[in-house]
Design a protein around this nucleic acid. Sequence first.
DNA 1: TCCCCGATTAACT
DNA 2: GTTAATCGGGGAG
Length: 218
Amino acid sequence: MDVPGDPVDGRALAQPSPVVAPFLLNKILAVADADGVRWVRLVEVEAYGETDPASHSFRGPSNRNNVMFGSPGRLYVYFSYGMHWCANVVTERSGVGAAVLLRAGEPLGGIEAMTAARNGVRLRDLCRGPARLAQAVGITGADNGAELGTPTAAGRTAWVLDDGVAPPARPAHGPRVGISRAVEVPWRWWVEGSPWVSTFRGGGPGPAGSNAVGRRSS
DNA sequence: TCCCCGATTAACT
DNA sequence: GTTAATCGGGGAG
């Protein structure tokens, strides 16, 4: 079973995150390793930029976020809550700290491997959420900084592919999820009505402010 | 050095 | 709806 599509043009990724994010909707994320290939159709993304208080890059380069300041078309993978990996695609030119978080996808291929990686959860929950998506396709911190299309030290290769399915003509967008700063910046995009979107809760992902926005702790 | 808290998820009640 | 799990970054002292 071959993965459909051709790699996206790197120049498309060298644009501001809020431009790249909706462009990535309906593109295919594919990851190959020794066990085979797994691929999903991206249905939910979020943009993060350097002048953005909610972005890891907001306070300038550091050991953790330096990949965001590198060349576009690479993976920025960060560790969160002591147990989760989340995958981003780096955008903008070198020197600008920006990336697009991959939040959810529709499982298309390598579903057995993804299900195994996700401890047998049902199809619906395989890739619905940024950490779930990364876990399903097998992306970890070992892949941080990897160039798309180039094998990593861990023996994995990731691609973003265009199989001819265009992004939604009018993608839904609204506030980002799980952040506490710049909550009002509507830099989350998703495929309207898709059951694979992370905040889909029966009634569907709402417009700005409906749910799962800006949860506070303390 | 200490301490708080996060671009979350899963398992509870 | 609520909460534990779990650890590294970064601001405060």
